[in-house]
Design a protein around this nucleic acid. Sequence first.
DNA 1: GCTTTTAGCTAATCACATTAGCTTCTGTCC
DNA 2: GGACAGAAGCTAATGTGATTAGCTAAAAGC
Lengths: 189, 189
Amino acid sequence: MPRERLGPSSVTRAAADLADEVGFERLGMGLLARRLLVRTPSLYKHVGGRADLAHRVAVLATTELGDALRDATQGVAGSEALAAAARALRTFVHDHPGRYAAVSTARPVGAGDPLVPARRRLLGSLTAVLHGYRLDPGQELHALRMVRSIVAAFATTETAGGFQVEVDAEDSFTWMVTFMDNGLRAARS
Amino acid sequence: MPRERLGPSSVTRAAADLADEVGFERLGMGLLARRLLVRTPSLYKHVGGRADLAHRVAVLATTELGDALRDATQGVAGSEALAAAARALRTFVHDHPGRYAAVSTARPVGAGDPLVPARRRLLGSLTAVLHGYRLDPGQELHALRMVRSIVAAFATTETAGGFQVEVDAEDSFTWMVTFMDNGLRAARS
DNA sequence: GCTTTTAGCTAATCACATTAGCTTCTGTCC
DNA sequence: GGACAGAAGCTAATGTGATTAGCTAAAAGC
């Protein structure tokens, strides 16, 4: 019976799924090999090692997240687009904590790194959302950093179980998005 | 010549310093032992291992950060307090990246974990700052969660070279603080 | 002064990642 | 059909880091 055909991309996909299940920091060559019913050294025929694997997962996840944001904000604008983008990001972190950890830890390495365009596309979707607020060009970058960081931080904390008190995180999230929307509309030039 | 007296707390302090210098993820028993002019296994007489060490560093750093925030916000209120807290936080993350990484990754483990009260004190300072804005009681928790997210966002912005463009993080910080202050003053009940 | 504890050490073990070198399967070209 | 090149798997070996076991000497308590 012929074994599943491996290869860089299927190994990367399996690694991303594994990271979502056990946590990005526990993603290792040994565990992944067991998952793929293969001995550890065999993986080196498909990826360069642990660091390379993590980087590939980051590229994959950044691309997926970029697609999700683009889809979510397609055809809406302004406050609605902000809410949709925030929700999509939060959902992604929720459903794919390992992938998101890869996204947020990865650093581009060298020129021609596919992570660079993947990130550009991801930030592009958020930029498009913010364009709807018609901010000062000088403010747009700050706003971009804020929205990205805040939403990601909220989702990460929430996913990690960081909110102790028994008030629905959903409500807090909505409140926070509204807060940002109000502020951005007020900052409109 | 009598050797420096070791012990759990001095080892933890040395570990925190080491983490600040080489990065929290590179904090290891071997490196720390070399730093203390001791063989690796000797450290196990003072701390329980790598995980325990990381946790102790987190408790220490959370306490230090809590103190810093309390000191910074002592005697001021409202916008001033918010700005002071933000500045103190940023200084801490900037000067002690390893300590901050410990703070943000640590999770309380079991009952009686000293991390729990340390965190409570830290959140307490933030709560006190928010009190100055006299929000609806129903809004305060949401605001606290948002501020927490922004705290994490600050750190992300500061440490990660994650943002490609070359605009000073300093500017983005002050912009974010102003943004929050405006929003909180507007939400005042 | 003796005894018990403590803090250090060496040696051994375990878990990973990684590298080297062998083998087998597959698909291509004659 | 068969020889052969390359791909993809494997076992064995190496290196690093954490951890444990068990020994020894210094120091603290009586």
